[in-house]
Design a protein around this nucleic acid. Sequence first.
DNA 1: CCCGTTTAGTGAACCGGTTTACTGAACCGT
DNA 2: ACGGTTCAGTAAACCGGTTCACTAAACGGG
Lengths: 339, 339
Amino acid sequence: MTQQRKRATIREVAKATGLSPAAVSYALRGIQTSEETQERVRRAAEALGYEAHPIARALASGRSGMVGLLCGSLEDLWQQSLAVGIGRALFARDRYAIILDAAGDPERELMLARQLRDQRVDGLIVQPLDPSASLWAELGESLPIVSIGDSLHGAHAYGEVVFDNRAGVTAALEHLHDLGHRHIAVLTPTMARTPDRPADVHVNAEAERLGVKVDVVPSPQALGAATDVALGVLGGTPRPSAVFCFSDSIGYGVYAATRELGLAVPEDVSVAGFDNHPMSALLTPPLTSVDWDIEGIVHSAVRVMIGAIDGKPRRRRIVCEPSLLQRESTGPVRSPDDS
Amino acid sequence: MTQQRKRATIREVAKATGLSPAAVSYALRGIQTSEETQERVRRAAEALGYEAHPIARALASGRSGMVGLLCGSLEDLWQQSLAVGIGRALFARDRYAIILDAAGDPERELMLARQLRDQRVDGLIVQPLDPSASLWAELGESLPIVSIGDSLHGAHAYGEVVFDNRAGVTAALEHLHDLGHRHIAVLTPTMARTPDRPADVHVNAEAERLGVKVDVVPSPQALGAATDVALGVLGGTPRPSAVFCFSDSIGYGVYAATRELGLAVPEDVSVAGFDNHPMSALLTPPLTSVDWDIEGIVHSAVRVMIGAIDGKPRRRRIVCEPSLLQRESTGPVRSPDDS
DNA sequence: CCCGTTTAGTGAACCGGTTTACTGAACCGT
DNA sequence: ACGGTTCAGTAAACCGGTTCACTAAACGGG
């Protein structure tokens, strides 16, 4: 073990100031003590290089200062951005994020969630793969949960930041429909394939309304794997004239597939994404995508979480509205196509 | 405050088994007790739903189980991947990563490092922006530090995973030289611009050896900002026939710039990257890049860190060798160009 | 059979803050 | 002058494990 240089404790500060440890504890938190004493204590603490031991504090106060962040699949670049953003935002508020990755596996997700509870995190922010799991209700009894993306079933989650997926789907499909596309492949992440997945439902409903044929195909988020799926979709006949991807990461895979197949975007096939990762604006051609204001999501999720930890009683539900960024990866259909 | 359902403590398990708390503590860790007792204790713990309180354990044992991970700039996609990978690897070994982002600012880096120490993390993994800061020596006295990328000055870091940058630079520049390029722009990250930055030194040395003219230009890692820098570099005259980027993220910015300027890659300008982010293989054209085996780096860094925490005495230095992945973003110069 | 060593387990101190219950003094209106 | 309230601060219990110093019993060699 590396030798840890011993650091000052609260009792030493107490001795130095002639106060009791309790008084020092109060003074440093600016309560229950006179201004004068607080100043004196602060000075002494400074002189001794005293910093409160967060672990001792956590044990005594029952708060760990840590928030678990459970991501569905960190292969996805957008989720990476989100995770990093949340970590940063929490740190700015004197909290720490423990970032875990369920890697697209719902079982793993539940396992990790349990582990986080056993770690006594103060709260849990989760992008649920399986929003219907009964575990959420159980966990919700012992710690505040904020979900991002999907609503957790049962009314137990403290807060949620949900996306108006229907609006996003509508915007994207209408856009493609307006361009004349009538046969569209929809690539949705493999994770969380519960039968009545809202996203899938929206896609089918919207397709029906618009009178377009959609092929819904599950795809992993990992870049290489998405490419393989896209190759299958674009290699078959009849070939869809457009692909709508439920994550930009998958869209990148589609780009790679089009190149491999010698197809031009958007001339031969239009591609639309979802999430608008910073990368997407830089691609050739820039990817049309449904944008979600990641900063806002991060901010909302963290604010709600901290409110929950601090015991604000009310449940919060925040709905994000999308905006479609039309870029150059979508264009009018060229040849009158099948169906 | 959400009501925390009270959980069983070690004393309750002790009461249930008729042993002392100490015996239970030992038994659950499989030491100092008979097989039989261990089994009995395990059973009782299970029945009571007992899980050791990690915070109490941390306070008593002096280990927090958390490792600080301080990244130079999480704008960089490769560093994101690295951070995520390390987080995952640590978790697999029952440790938690606190991921922080210095956002390219050396001052901020030192501030965060200090905060991590005050948080009593068990160790610190850092991709130093400013390897020469004297703070590292100071921190090194109270906790093990593993650096990734650059070697920390002073012999205090416990371990380091360094890249053979010279070899990487050589591979890239030789490749470009072989293709006939004699005027190459080199975009290096703005962060960590210490005067004698090894990377810059290598670039200049190698350029001299090969007889090529290099323009070394600092660039931010953020995708948009890198694009702006690239626009400046490629918009000027004489225009370099190739760009070598010290990070793939910057390379993506260069791609965007070439599109904006109507330049073809690699016909008008060759582009080479550094780090080989998964994305790079999917771009059009796929980006030639210097690859570093991220899995290996993650594994090494975590192994060394855990060794250090567990008190293995020896210092470890691991050197990563690069391999150049030639893809389609680099090609022969077209017109005989300047200098 | 005796003495020295393991083995299994105990009790109490300890890690370093926080919090509760309480006290003495000052302050208040009447 | 008096009971009631607020203010500043205290002593001790507490959070829930770990570890140190120690002991009784079992074991083993000569």
